[in-house]
Simulated scan of single mutants.
Amino acid sequence: MTTLLKTPLGIAEVSGDELGISKIEILDQEEFQQEEVPKELETAVDQLKGYFSGELKNFTLKMNPAGTNFQKQVWQALNKIPYGETRSYLELSKELGNVKAIRAVAAANGKNPLWIVIPCHRVIGSDGSLTGYAGGLWRKKWLLDFENPPLQQELF
């Protein structure tokens, strides 16, 4: 089952079934026709709406992403990165117990099938740079700014 959801970053396609959400991806399309949300996807849609409204910081969805054991291990590590924080690929590799696995960690990060829910956007380069992001670097920057807005400076 799938449904579409309009977000500030474009149209998201949410897929899943009674076993959990298997895929959330951002589409490069502007228009879509609103459809009834299948019962199995209602929680995911509600939580995504809550995230984008600023009311939800932690997803509690039943997830069922397809991937290798290593990819799932990386995705579990990504889920531990708190809202508003970032980690480097090197830090993530160390956390997983293999500092030499940076490229494998980056590849698994890039294969993340659950856009936003598994927060791969929170992984940056060791030098603080925004590195590759399947949805486009502008979306990654938007998400990081959304989760950690700059402090308002006093004018006087």
Rank of each mutant, 00 (worst) to 15 (best):
V117G: 00
P82V: 02
F70M: 10
A66M: 07
L27D: 07
K49I: 04
E31F: 08
F32P: 02
V105D: 00
I21S: 01
Q47K: 01
G16I: 07
E40D: 10
G128M: 02
I124R: 02
L9Y: 08
G132P: 07
K80E: 12
S22R: 00
L41H: 01
I24Q: 04
A108C: 07
F156T: 09
K94I: 12
A108Q: 04
V74M: 03
V105Y: 00
G128A: 06
Q152M: 15
D46I: 04
G16S: 03
L41T: 01
L144K: 05
M63Y: 00
F146Y: 13
I81M: 11
V99W: 12
E55R: 13
I26T: 06
G54E: 08
L5M: 03
A108M: 05
P113M: 06
P150C: 07
L56C: 07
D17C: 01
L61E: 00
G67A: 11
A134W: 07
V74Q: 00
N64A: 09
K94C: 14
L19C: 14
L96S: 01
L41K: 02
T43K: 07
L41V: 04
E95C: 10
P38L: 06
T2F: 13
G54K: 05
L41I: 12
N98I: 12
D145K: 13
S22P: 04
N109C: 15
E154K: 15
A66V: 14
K57R: 12
P65F: 00
E13R: 00
F59K: 01
Y83T: 05
K6A: 08
P113V: 06
L96F: 03
Y133N: 04
L56S: 07
L144D: 01
S126W: 08
L4C: 03
A107W: 14
G110P: 03
L5S: 01
R87A: 11
E18A: 15
R87K: 12
F59H: 00
E85K: 11
L155S: 11
G54A: 03
T43C: 13
G67Q: 08
L137V: 07
P150H: 12
K141Y: 11
V123L: 07
P82Q: 09
E154A: 15
S22Y: 04
G10A: 05
D46M: 07
Q33E: 12
A12L: 05
P8C: 07
R122A: 02
S53R: 13
E85D: 15
K141F: 04
S88H: 07
